[in-house]
Amino acid sequence: MTHPAAKAILSLYQRHAEAFARQRSRTLFEKPWLDKFTAIIGNRGSILDIGCGNGQPIAEYFIAQGFTLTGVDGASAMLARARARFPHQRWLQQDMRQLALNDTFDGLIAWDSFFHLSQQDQRGMFDIFARHSHAGSALMFTSGPADGIAMGQFEGEPLFHASLAPEAYRSQLTAAGFDVVDAVLNDPACAGHSVWLAQRTH
């Protein structure tokens, strides 16, 4: 049974989009990982940002590098900010769990978004990653460091996070046709994030 806080994620971000925009760090501490990701894609290409939020700072970084960006988020209030700031990119309001764009991308990223899903829903996402990628595509996402659920708080409300075990992520990636390029759990150089970078092999 899905945790109530997992079901409430989209409505929480919808209601607190302004607070998120105000509090989200824009120091781009993620840059070393973003650069590893774009190095796989090459100088130009298309990126699918899954759980893009308001588009800052990650989508903004890719757009500045000349990539074509499609941002997907389930919270319309977050997307409204992204559309206003970056009107020439494509922004789609969709639940990532039902994503079916009938298109593939050179890079797929789910940074601090995928880990808000239940463990069962996370497992289901790997088929979605596969359907939206092709041979050579890069995939990067953040997770927790170990199997389990971790509850945080945002604007006084419970904030759900879940993770599979590292070996389970490796298994899911392999089954979806991806090889792990790099993976660091609790990366001290990236504000403690656990990051997975993979590439589609076939």
Rank of each mutant, 00 (worst) to 15 (best):
R83E: 14
Q89H: 06
R81F: 13
F86H: 10
L99W: 05
D106H: 15
N102E: 13
Q94C: 07
D106Y: 08
A80C: 07
Q93I: 11
L108V: 13
F86M: 14
A84K: 15
S76Q: 14
R83F: 02
P87C: 06
R85Y: 00
D95M: 06
S76E: 12
R81K: 15
A80I: 06
Q93P: 06
D95S: 13
F105T: 00
Q98S: 15
T104L: 02
R85M: 06
W111S: 00
F105D: 03
S76L: 09
T104C: 07
A110K: 02
F114L: 13
G107T: 09
L108R: 01
A77F: 09
A75W: 01
A84F: 11
T104Q: 04
R85F: 02
I109A: 04
D106P: 09
D112A: 15
A77K: 08
A100E: 12
P87N: 08
A77W: 04
F105W: 03
L92V: 12
L99N: 03
D106M: 10
D95F: 09
M96C: 07
T104W: 04
Q89C: 06
L101S: 09
R97W: 12
A110H: 02
L92R: 00
D103P: 07
A80P: 07
R90E: 05
N102I: 02
L79Q: 03
I109F: 00
Q98F: 14
S76I: 08
T104K: 04
Q93A: 09
A77H: 10
S113V: 13
N102D: 15
L108Q: 05
R90V: 05
D103Y: 14
R81L: 14
H88A: 10
Q93H: 08
L108C: 11
Q98E: 15
S76D: 11
Q93L: 11
A100T: 09
A82I: 06
R81I: 14
A77L: 07
A75I: 00
Q93M: 14
R97T: 15
W91T: 01
F105G: 01
S76T: 13
R85V: 07
P87E: 00
D112R: 07
A110N: 04
A110Y: 02
Q93K: 10
G107A: 05
F114N: 01
L92W: 01
P87D: 03
H88C: 03
L99E: 04
A110D: 00
F105A: 04
A80N: 09
P87W: 03
A75G: 09
R83L: 10
A110L: 08
L101Q: 04
L92E: 03
D112P: 07
A84G: 15
P87V: 05
N102M: 12
M96L: 15
G107W: 01
M96K: 12
A80Q: 04
P87R: 02
S76V: 08
T104A: 04
R81D: 02
L92S: 04
A80R: 08
D95Q: 15
Q94G: 01
F105Y: 12
A100D: 14
R85G: 02
